[in-house]
Amino acid sequence: MKPKIGILYATVDGQTLKICRFIQDLLVEKGYTVALFTTENFDKKVTDFDTFIIGASIRYGKHNPKIIEFINQNKSALEKVENAFFSVNLVARKPEKASPETNPYFIKFLKEIDWVPKKSAVFAGKLDYQKYPFTDRLMIQLIMWMTKGPTNSKTKIEYTDWGKVKEFANSIHIK
């Protein structure tokens, strides 16, 4: 029987979903059965899967509260299966903040929850000012100005290192 993998995600602008689909495609190519869920449409049990992966993006320094709630409610089930978590954020565009050990949002996240994933990663997201609502655009431009990032309102940069995503997917232990 093929191992079953569940991937649950929360995304703001779609980059986390794009990363999840990339991981899903890689794992399907290897012969695994992979199901993709949002926090809103997850209608299974974590233990229905041999491996469970969670991906979440950051907005204004925080992961989606529904991801935190999901983890807190399913902690014991997550610990019964192979599991992994990845965070997607723009601060990870800087090499010195692109790992779980050095990314301030990931470090803060682990302090907010009572769970330590067996495998974890941090990926840089995508900056697309044209896609953001006006207020978000202004706030993100301010944050980028403070962190010495691009502030031109026409900027569109995908910082995601797809090789790093592939390496993460290939490193997840599948039972």
Rank of each mutant, 00 (worst) to 15 (best):
K2R: 14
K2T: 15
I5T: 04
I5N: 01
G6R: 00
I7M: 03
L8R: 02
A10Q: 05
Q15K: 10
L26R: 12
K30D: 11
G31D: 13
A35C: 10
F37A: 04
T38I: 06
E40Q: 14
E40W: 00
N41Y: 06
K45M: 08
V46S: 06
V46T: 09
D48W: 06
D48K: 08
D48E: 14
D50T: 10
T51Q: 07
I58C: 02
H63F: 02
I68W: 03
I71M: 05
I71T: 03
Q73D: 12
S76T: 15
A77G: 01
E82N: 15
E82S: 15
N83R: 12
F86R: 06
S87K: 01
S87R: 01
S87D: 06
V88M: 02
L90I: 14
V91M: 13
A92D: 05
S99R: 09
P100L: 08
T102M: 11
T102F: 03
N103I: 07
N103F: 02
P104W: 05
P104C: 10
F106Q: 11
F109L: 15
L110Q: 15
L110N: 15
W115Q: 06
V116T: 14
V116W: 00
V116C: 05
K118W: 03
K118I: 06
K119S: 13
S120G: 10
V122Y: 04
F123A: 05
F123L: 10
L127A: 09
L127C: 08
D128I: 00
D128F: 04
Y129T: 09
Y129S: 07
F134S: 13
F134G: 07
T135N: 05
D136M: 12
L138D: 04
L142Y: 14
L142F: 14
M146E: 09
G149H: 06
I157E: 09
K164P: 02
V165L: 00
V165Q: 02
